[in-house]
């Protein structure tokens, strides 16, 4: 337990001093501001633009437009930045040979995985909550929030998918020992899930739903029953893939 806390603390120091924490907080803070801004700007720009002399009049932006932007930004570029920042989480240790010292000091191998997962998950949570809080602040300030459905499930789903991404990055880094390997495994998994989503029957079981259809949940177009199976599968995947990482790492020759 003490070794776990010590190594987790080391992970936080690393993320702080190698600017990873700064980058993630800054980027997600930025998305938090951008989402309501874009929602507010788009109708006004369209109105002033007037393509080919035709005046386009869009309805005034609403709180929902702000949330659409939020899920789009976080679910696409946000997750991409998260992946790029954490793709080196395992491979950096392998490529620099820094694990040899700590492992020969008696650090259990599974502790390495759990510490890294803990730190990355906490940083993702902080970034996500910051982004959410900022967008929320602007949205209540500018618009009437109206009736939102399934609020917790919609926001929790996006967070859970981010966590799955972190676990995939750790597994990829453990398997291939490289930055690219980590990124490719996580990217490949997301692409595969997106392809599977073409079949409507699979959608409600597919974790990728958790970062794609959140606004449909907020507006009530989709029901909790369309999301809960995917949530359960996603949680199961997080547990299983973490276990696989531990097992694979235990057998790695370093």
């Amino acid at each position: 337990m003490r070794a776990y806390l010590a190594f987790t603390k080391k992970e936080f120091i690393e993320n702080l001093r190698t600017y990873k924490l700064l980058i993630l907080l800054a980027v997600f803070l930025l998305f938090g501001v951008m989402s309501p801004l874009v929602a507010k700007l788009v109708p006004e720009i369209m109105q002033n633009l007037g393509i080919g002399g035709i005046k386009i009049t869009l309805p005034e932006a609403t709180a929902m437009d702000s949330w659409v932007q939020f899920f789009k930004n976080v679910g696409q570029i946000g997750l991409l930045v998260l992946a790029v920042v954490f793709a080196g989480i395992m491979s950096n240790e392998f490529s620099r040979g820094t694990l040899v010292n700590v492992l020969t000091k008696g650090l259990k191998r599974h502790t390495v995985i759990f510490s890294k997962l803990t730190a990355a998950a906490l940083i993702w949570t902080m970034s996500y909550l910051l982004c959410l809080a900022v967008t929320y602040g602007y949205t209540v300030y500018f618009w009437d929030m109206g009736e939102l459905q399934h609020v917790f499930l919609a926001f929790f789903s996006m967070w859970l998918f981010g966590l799955l991404l972190v676990v995939l990055l750790i597994l990829g880094g453990t398997l291939f020992k490289t930055f690219i390997g980590s990124l490719l495994l996580a990217g490949g998994a997301v692409v595969a899930m997106t392809l599977l989503n073409i079949s409507p029957k699979i959608q409600k079981y597919n974790p990728v739903t958790l970062c794609g259809d959140n606004t449909a949940l907020l507006t009530g177009v989709k029901n909790a029953s369309d999301f809960v199976p995917a949530v359960i599968i996603c949680i199961a995947l997080v547990v299983v893939l973490t276990t696989v990482s531990v097992v694979v790492f235990d057998r790695k020759q370093i």
Partner: peptide
């Protein structure tokens, strides 16, 4: 009207 957006945006980008 857009000042509440612009100020934090500029601060973050400049900060980075």
């Amino acid at each position: 009207q857009y000042l509440p957006f612009l100020i934090p945006l500029i601060v973050i980008e400049l900060g980075l």
